[in-house]
């Protein structure tokens, strides 16, 4: 579903991704771990199409299409979703309004009829229960005055409503208490299906206790240095990242 080959990207003169390879098949959950500054958010931003990143080499295919040639909104409509590490506040723009506009843009792309306000409310209420979010969040400005944890839940709510085929979660678990973590994990698990894939960027093993990954990768200095099964995450938790680097230097 997602195939990244030898991806190089930089911000200004600074090289951040330095030959990254990643292969994600439908139905899989991948976890990407790595120290701060290794390029995890950069990878997520490049995949979602944020401006300011220059891809100097490499390819990204999504469903056989050249993902990098698409505008951000086209990627979203094609089923790519990024849960941001730091969701932005948009004062005055109603949370429900943005989400309904997004849902209908995506449905149009899929040839489905647009949902009206009633259908939308019915749908979103169900998902909010799953996220244990109060309905009052619908009528507030997008992330306006939300706490860190509320912003993260709101990201997962959007994901649950938009039902992406490829979900990228950038440290959605950071800063969450254990209850919120479970809620987020539920959201991810309920999205899991044979024709969808999830990429979790995380620092912590604990999310992986609730969402079991098929593959775990170590991203270090702009490249995937090592991949393994879920036991790799436990090992990283115990031993840190240095040994991975040493192992890679030897190889």
């Amino acid at each position: 579903m997602l195939s990244i080959r030898d991806l190089h990207a930089r911000i200004g003169a600074r090289k951040i991704l330095k030959g990254l390879d990643l292969e994600v098949r439908a139905g899989e959950v991948h976890a990407i771990m790595g120290p701060n500054g290794s390029g995890k958010s950069t990878l997520a931003s490049v995949l979602a199409g944020r401006d300011g990143y220059e891809v100097t080499a490499g390819r990204v295919e999504y469903d056989g299409r050249d993902l990098l040639a698409l505008a951000p909104e086209e990627r979203a409509r094609a089923g790519v979703f990024l849960a941001f590490q730091y969701p932005v506040e948009i004062p005055g723009v109603n949370n429900a309004y943005l989400l309904k506009a997004a849902l209908n843009a995506i449905r149009r792309e899929r040839g489905l009829p647009e949902v009206d306000a009633f259908e939308f409310l019915a749908l979103v209420r169900g998902k909010m229960q799953l996220m244990q979010m109060d309905e009052s969040f619908l009528n507030r400005g997008v992330n306006e005055g939300f706490s860190g944890g509320e912003k993260k839940r709101n990201e997962i709510l959007q994901m649950a409503v938009l039902e992406p085929r490829l979900a990228l979660l950038d440290e959605t678990d950071s800063g969450l208490d254990i209850d919120a973590l479970r809620v987020v994990a539920n959201g991810v698990n309920s999205l899991r299906s044979p024709d969808r894939a999830v990429v979790l960027v995380t620092h912590y093993q604990r999310l992986l206790d609730y969402v079991e990954p098929d593959v775990v990768h170590v991203l270090y200095d702009g490249r995937i240095l090592k991949s393994g099964d879920k036991s790799l995450a436990l090992e990283l938790e115990r031993r840190g990242y240095d040994w991975v680097r040493q192992e890679a230097q030897v190889a």
Binding site: A48, G49, R50, D51, G52, A71, P72, E73, R75, A76, R77, F81, L82, F84, P87, V88, I90, L98, L99, A101, A102, L103, A105, I106, E109, V142, Q158, L162
Partner: peptide, 13 residues
């Protein structure tokens, strides 16, 4: 830019 990008990343033109 990040507000614009946020909306676009959700599928909004």
């Amino acid at each position: 830019d990040d507000q614009l990008f946020y909306c676009r990343s959700r599928g909004v033109s």
